[in-house]
């Protein structure tokens, strides 16, 4: 019995010792992750603006003769292809933090940072925001990967809407790891 106790004590002690890592045992040469916050309430706002140039075009969504083209992180260009040889931009839907959209009938569903917003299209002439679900999306306060270094989350800075690799930070400067 004392022998078993000795073994258990030793084994437990070894496990505890093994759990302790010094700062130098992590690969601090790897690029850390950095949280992207959204703290500005004015960004939770969809606006219908005049057409503008496409700078960073992305995903395409279609509805009849209309194409909605993603402007990354910024919104959607509304383009009429009623005359396909002469397409025409009709408007720009400004959606800060835009990532995803889907269309059903007269309604467009979009992400506005972490909110899910419903937009009534009204044949693309008088679009209007029809509904909003706040914080339909969430991200944890740590990156979705293991074995990584990251800048510790600070909830006073706002809601975390993304995790990005940060070339500007050095591994030795960040305090959190997973």
């Amino acid at each position: 019995m004392p022998t078993r106790l000795l073994f258990c004590t030793l084994f437990g002690g070894l496990l505890l010792l093994n759990a302790c890592r010094s700062e130098n045992e992590w690969d601090t040469s790897s690029t850390p992750y950095e949280p992207v916050y959204n703290a500005d309430p004015s960004t939770k706002h969809v606006r219908f603006l005049a057409p503008r140039s496409t700078l960073n075009g992305g995903n395409l969504y279609t509805s009849g003769d209309y194409v909605l083209e993603e402007e990354k992180d910024a919104g959607l260009h509304v383009i009429s292809y009623q005359d396909p040889a002469h397409p025409k931009k009709l408007a720009f839907i400004s959606i800060p933090g835009f990532r995803a959209a889907a269309i059903k009938g007269d309604y467009l569903y979009v992400s506005n940072y972490d909110d899910l917003v419903t937009i009534r299209l009204n044949s693309f002439t008088t679009m209007q925001e029809a509904g909003r679900i706040s914080q339909a999306w969430h991200l944890d306060d740590y990156p979705p990967f293991t074995g990584v270094l990251f800048e510790c989350a600070d909830t006073t800075k706002g809601t975390i809407v993304a995790w990005k690799l940060s070339e500007d930070l050095s591994g030795t400067s960040v305090k959190c790891r997973r």
């Binding site: 690029t31 933090g97 990532r99 293991t146």
Partner: peptide, 18 residues
């Protein structure tokens, strides 16, 4: 250290779409 496997450069809300 576990070698870091960079799966995606950027993880965001709504990444999987609607």
């Amino acid at each position: 250290p576990v070698s870091v496997r960079y799966v995606a450069p950027y993880k965001t809300v709504a990444q999987a779409g609607i």
